[in-house]
Design a protein around this nucleic acid. Sequence first.
DNA 1: TACAATACCTCATAATTCTATGTATTGTTT
DNA 2: AAACAATACATAGAATTATGAGGTATTGTA
Lengths: 123, 123
Amino acid sequence: MRYCNSMYICSMYSKELLKGTLSVIILNLLAENGRMYGYEIFQRVKELSDEKILLKDGSLYPALQKLSKDGLLSYEEEYLGKRVRKYYYLTPKGKQEKVVYLEELKDFMMTLNKIIFPQAGTI
Amino acid sequence: MRYCNSMYICSMYSKELLKGTLSVIILNLLAENGRMYGYEIFQRVKELSDEKILLKDGSLYPALQKLSKDGLLSYEEEYLGKRVRKYYYLTPKGKQEKVVYLEELKDFMMTLNKIIFPQAGTI
DNA sequence: TACAATACCTCATAATTCTATGTATTGTTT
DNA sequence: AAACAATACATAGAATTATGAGGTATTGTA
């Protein structure tokens, strides 16, 4: 039975804002850290975001599976005692796509800034 | 029949990235411009984004309807000859919500920056 | 011995945008 | 005048993606 699973606490952000960015976040973390397992990604995102973004495991694990299915990630299983960990890492294709995704996100954020905060765009 | 409707040209951005931000964009534009009609919003976003974000009318009009249904927008119909224009404007509730949405988006973008571009976070 | 934390999973649902399609008017070019 | 482009609205089904709710099981701690 589940008593208190911190992975279930809601993010403070509108759910919709996260859409499209979860993949980029995962790809980026893996690019920086080499290989990580699901729960580790959850913790790292929590840490880096000052506890503001708390990924739901119902979002994270399917996302990892999808990225694997699409050939961007690969994984190795490791055992600590009887517990399984799936260490994910970027495939060559994943490394390429990561750059594209990141560029697109960066560009999108700059554009959004121009639209939403035009006063700051006069640099 | 449709020959060449510029509103149908695809945005260069991953569709998913726009999710959650369309409402904020609309609310923000209306807050700055008082009142606007759908096609005008499309054009303004196109202009402000250097033609990078081209809203689909299949996204924009339903979004305007939803925001109206939720009580954030209201509108007045005006006629230019026989053509109808629906001028949308923020309700008092919409003005409040706009601030909240914007704060949330701003906060989310800063958090995302921390996660994705941690090197810049050492300010 | 509880309990909390770690570690994985699936599936139905909700929310939002997209694609495709439709109608109709106004202005411009040939 | 005819053809076309741009303006201006609309809807409905499809697609995508995160959530919520549910599940299993191990390890460490109070």
